[in-house]
Design a protein around this nucleic acid. Sequence first.
DNA 1: CATGAATGAGCTTTCATTCAT
DNA 2: TATGAATGAAAGCTCATTCAT
Lengths: 189, 189, 189, 189
Amino acid sequence: MPKRVDRTARQEEILAAAVKVFARKGFAASRIEDVAAEAGIAKGSVYLYFPSRDALLAGVFESYAAKSEPASADPGTGSALDRLDHLVRATVEMLAAHPDHARVLLDVWASNPPLDLADMYRRHRGAIADLLVEAAAAGELRTGIGAPHAAVIVGAIEGCLVQSLADPDVSLSELAEPILQVCVAGIRR
Amino acid sequence: MPKRVDRTARQEEILAAAVKVFARKGFAASRIEDVAAEAGIAKGSVYLYFPSRDALLAGVFESYAAKSEPASADPGTGSALDRLDHLVRATVEMLAAHPDHARVLLDVWASNPPLDLADMYRRHRGAIADLLVEAAAAGELRTGIGAPHAAVIVGAIEGCLVQSLADPDVSLSELAEPILQVCVAGIRR
Amino acid sequence: MPKRVDRTARQEEILAAAVKVFARKGFAASRIEDVAAEAGIAKGSVYLYFPSRDALLAGVFESYAAKSEPASADPGTGSALDRLDHLVRATVEMLAAHPDHARVLLDVWASNPPLDLADMYRRHRGAIADLLVEAAAAGELRTGIGAPHAAVIVGAIEGCLVQSLADPDVSLSELAEPILQVCVAGIRR
Amino acid sequence: MPKRVDRTARQEEILAAAVKVFARKGFAASRIEDVAAEAGIAKGSVYLYFPSRDALLAGVFESYAAKSEPASADPGTGSALDRLDHLVRATVEMLAAHPDHARVLLDVWASNPPLDLADMYRRHRGAIADLLVEAAAAGELRTGIGAPHAAVIVGAIEGCLVQSLADPDVSLSELAEPILQVCVAGIRR
DNA sequence: CATGAATGAGCTTTCATTCAT
DNA sequence: TATGAATGAAAGCTCATTCAT
């Protein structure tokens, strides 16, 4: 019989506040007190849910990683390339819909201790590589295109995200089509 | 002819030391004293060349931006697409040759005050967009491919760089060909 | 007959828990929550019985002072020196039997605000001084021995206790005889 | 060519300030800033000489232990018991002359992590035990008196010190004679 | 120019205490 | 009574920056 809100709900409130604050001023310049204020609680209360400032960043990263988990959960229909198209589109849309989370991802780079970005990218590449291999087997791809190109596709998405975060004139949503034209249509036989 | 090294030379020694240190432990965890030690000088002396810790990061960023300044300075020869191929290749090689600088670029994201990443990306996109427009005019591109796709190409390079920095198993050099196959060969008519 | 245990009984349960915890890690490093956990109750409940953390230490000290209250309550039989022998022996045994309380006594020194150790020592010296005066009057003591030597006897006991607490190789029980030989036999005419 | 004062001198200034402050309000209630203020320097400067607050207490303890190192360094002259008399007297005088250090010793008990009091007592007992054994061999002691009684003598001194610290009415200096009468004269054959 | 001791603002973290349930 | 989530004052420690030498 918890007092009012259960641990998980309160934890997520704090995480949501942290995402906002970190996105606004960067993790390095964000104080625990800023997060607490944004969440409408006292500084010390943050520590009832997260053991340290770093854990807060890790928490945000995890929630991001979960969100960005390939929407490929959806087995999809159609050819492998169609499903690749769908996966890329879904990923871009997800990222465009959560710019704050995406912005914090960049802070994760500077995190100390380092958080496991490698694993996240590995999973993304894996999901795409699987589709590429399948498409190649079905003869849908140009000669010479295969699993190694997954990194390029993941990179194109990530790189466009970065540009959109750095430059308000660049819209990630509007880059969805160009990405697909280059990364999907461009590799088709 | 002052003491032994002139102001500029000493400044660059310090910048070189800063790149090494920042790349090793991240900007956030790097102290002025670490940089001074790496440069073999005293902490206070750093301030004779840089007004603040942030200025040091800015200096490193500027030297990176200069390096990454499109090798397009070289007007090059051949068709626009050939020159695009050359530009992408040169950029990837430059990045692969300076992993420390590249690593620090990510810290620039977390910098406070923010440094002008937008401008750097803008210039990269501009150089590539020019070639795309020229190639399109020459009828070398598939229909629908043009300036907006410059962001995708820049992104693919940047995104592959990020993956290679995050994951020692990913080699940027080895991604050069896949990038070209997708981003250059893939847009050819 | 309230709930299950009356106020006093519950207070003493908490005090017993406090002694254990304080003896284990020292007062300075002991948190109210540690004491509550040891007592099997919630943190906040401690405050229903003690107004503050300091009051907890004071409570432990008082219970110690009460215990160490000269067993001289027993008027005893035999000569004054025999009764002194008995008193010293009883005191040492009491201390040896309650090492936790004794350990906490040392924390009382570091307490802020200070607790009245002076009074406790005064009472100990008083009880012993009375016996010394009586013994002197009966001609049982060497010339020059009297009330001022009570501090030495109290000190010898206290000092041996301290050594036994500091060093597991020193056993207070085994020091009982040496103390008596020096402090009682040694002052006999 | 140090700036103005050498490390060691400055370290001792800080230690001296620490002793004063700790003696005045107890270690637990003493803040680093209090010590710095007493030493006339800034808070942060303390950390140039001591790595932590605990190290400050350890430093004070060490300087105390050094001071209290048996004045027995003096091989002395006369019988073993004469030398014991001299040693006890010198020890008491040293303690009486440095009440601040002695007061801090009690805080050392509450220290976390614990400092090695056991070793200090061991050395004191050892010095005295040596004299007792020598005196026994020379037939100067009552039957049954020997090395184990060293703990009683050390304890008597320590215990008297404690009483004098707790109670301004008790003077350690004035207890020197009673201690000698009980602990030295009392064990003589 | 070079140095590195000194400074002190500022941050993270802890925990005694309170109080709504 | 009992609870434990919430609070916020307090303190240890770090480190960018300054400046006397």
